[in-house]
Design a protein around this nucleic acid. Structure first.
Lengths: 157, 157
DNA sequence: CTCGCAAATTAGAATTATTATAATTTGACA
DNA sequence: TGTCAAATTATAATAATTCTAATTTGCGAG
């Protein structure tokens, strides 16, 4: 983890930003909750545990900054809040998401599934793709099993 | 257009909702601005021209309702506002968007480019896809041309 | 036809997320 | 050590959306 913090520190310095204690605490929270899709408020509450003097506005500003540096991506699953998601090291593009409409769980897909599609868009629409957002809405594995279980219970009773 | 309104009316009735004048005015605005990706506020202002007595809350409720019925899709391009986009008649899935990071223009892609990708997700992740959101961020045709023009001007001067 | 009721609508207040402001603090560097 | 820009803080302001309570609408029973 220290390695990744170091790397982010260098990225900041290369743009002449500093890794202040508040920023470091925020980054640590993001690293520790990498799979969680935290909202700004969530991050704020978690950071506050390590650094109680931090202000909400600072968290917002830090997340904004990390977003500019492409360290995190800001996403929106349709509820009114922005969520902030760390990019994997060296990832060129944003990863994809599977959002379950039953239980609300969010799964991530690292693989880039869009190579071919991007080529089509570039060739056929003349649009130079820089980044993408892809989210699938549907039923996750767990909820599918539960649905099957519920059905068979009903039938056998 | 009347045909499409009729169809929406039937959809509403099938769930025992009514097509009130306010709702009809809202639907008309959406139909007349089909390519525009209006925000709730935009819709409100346009509806107000035809039906000045309408309230903002009603517009929100109507858009919410249309969203449930899958007549419109609620999208979010990362600025803080939700936008509402009519589905094409009979479209199973939501269409895709190309958002230009230079000029902010939004282009739509009707074709379903994700058939193969959805199969991969279903087979490999066991996730039953019901719908998707796909947005590409990049440089549109027009801005690409302008960039080229600017470069060559600079070189020749 | 009209009465009553449920659904829909209205204006405006309330809530939530986010951004701006102005004063204060911090820390690198001369 | 003193200075100065950058960063942070608390708080106020704004923007988007939702809630509330009172009022209106319009269909179906009588």
């Amino acid at each position: 983890m220290e390695h990744r913090i170091d790397k982010i520190k260098k990225q900041l310095h290369s743009q002449s930003y500093k890794l202040t204690p508040q920023r470091e605490a925020t980054v640590r929270v993001l690293l520790e909750n990498e799979t969680d899709h935290l909202s700004a408020e969530d991050v704020y509450l978690l950071v506050k545990e390590k650094a109680p003097e931090i202000g909400l506005a600072t968290v917002y500003r830090t997340l904004e900054l990390l977003s500019e540096l492409k360290v995190v991506d800001k996403i929106n699953f349709g509820d009114g809040v922005s969520r902030y998601d760390l990019r994997k090291e060296g990832a060129e593009h944003f990863h994809h998401h599977l959002v379950c409409i039953e239980c609300g769980s969010v799964e991530e897909i690292e693989e880039d599934l869009l190579g071919d599609v991007e080529k089509i868009v570039e060739n056929q629409w003349g649009f130079e793709v820089k980044d993408h957002r892809l989210t699938f809405h549907g039923i996750c594995k767990v909820c599918q099993k539960q649905a099957v279980a519920a059905t068979s219970t009903k039938q056998s009773s």
